[in-house]
């Protein structure tokens, strides 16, 4: 695996107010590969993934140290335009969150905001991205219906299509399958394998089998309460799961953590 590094976390720490949620994390994100972040609840993995498109700042006042870079440029630098950053680094959330609009409007939403006016181009985009997430055949006859009429798994695929519609380089997925049934989960996983050819994916997951199945690299966050938000081990997924270097990792992936 010799893919170039697209994003990189360099000794990155982030605090809400004065409380550090993640500390001194250094790891590379390789282009066109899937990087999984695993670890127990409360270990800071959701905070960490939201640091890649600076979503944490929406909720509360945050402080950070270190850097996260995108194509070599620090995304926390003063001259960074958040709008352009979030266009390049898209996100899919834990709970499917389609907008209260029609299926088609959900896809058109991003491109419209970013200046696409042509009706026919927008219609083409709807088909293109719905096909990309393998939803087209299921919804092509009801594009004008509310996105809420879809099942949870379909909604999540719609949200992935919506995130793709602004052509991001990186897709952040924060436990995208935790609210879905196993069949819907498998569909999303297949989809991620397809998307990997065109886009770089970072996924947070509770489900270790999922990380093992789909990711190329895995980052394991600590289980120890005294070291909140620290990275224990990072490496090629196969190595992490078959030959972990740290005892904590071994314990966690074999289900003996704590």
């Amino acid at each position: 695996m010799t893919n170039p590094i697209l994003m990189e976390s360099r000794d990155f720490s982030l605090a809400y107010g004065k409380k550090w949620a993640i500390q001194h994390i250094t790891l590379p994100i390789y282009q066109n590969l899937i990087t999984a972040i695993i670890g127990p609840s409360g270990c800071g993995k959701s905070t960490y993934i939201r640091a890649f498109n600076r979503m944490n700042e929406l909720l509360a006042k945050t402080n950070h140290e270190g850097q996260i870079t995108l194509k070599g440029k620090d995304i926390y630098a003063a001259d960074i335009d958040l709008v352009s950053l979030r266009t390049q680094v898209g996100m899919v959330f834990q709970k499917p969150n389609p907008f209260p609009k029609s299926i088609a409007e959900n896809i058109k939403f991003g491109p419209k905001i970013h200046g696409e006016k042509s009706k026919s181009a927008l219609t083409d985009l709807v088909e293109h991205y719905l096909k990309k997430v393998a939803l087209w055949e299921e919804v092509k006859d009801k594009l004008d219906q509310s996105a809420f009429s879809l099942s949870g798994g379909q909604q999540q695929r719609l949200c992935i299509a919506r995130a793709l519609s602004v052509k991001p380089d990186v897709l952040l997925m924060d436990e995208p399958c935790s609210a879905l049934d196993p069949i819907a989960t498998l569909k999303i996983e297949d989809l991620m394998r397809e998307l990997e050819k065109e886009i770089t994916i970072i996924i947070v997951t509770h489900n270790m089998q999922q990380a093992a199945r789909i990711s190329d690299y895995t980052a394991f966050f600590n289980t120890d309460e005294s070291r909140i938000g620290e990275l224990i081990e990072f490496g090629i997924t196969k190595n992490i799961f078959t030959n972990p270097k740290h005892k904590q990792t071994t314990d966690y992936i074999t289900g003996r953590f704590g």
């Binding site: 929406l58 996100m91 959330f93």
Partner: peptide, 23 residues
């Protein structure tokens, strides 16, 4: 208004006013 509507829109690269106006 559910915060997920805001998050989703921010994550698509909308400005604060666009998020407000559209979502």
């Amino acid at each position: 208004v559910p915060s997920s509507y805001r998050d989703g829109a921010f994550a698509l690269g909308l400005t604060q006013w666009q998020v407000l106006r559209k979502n």
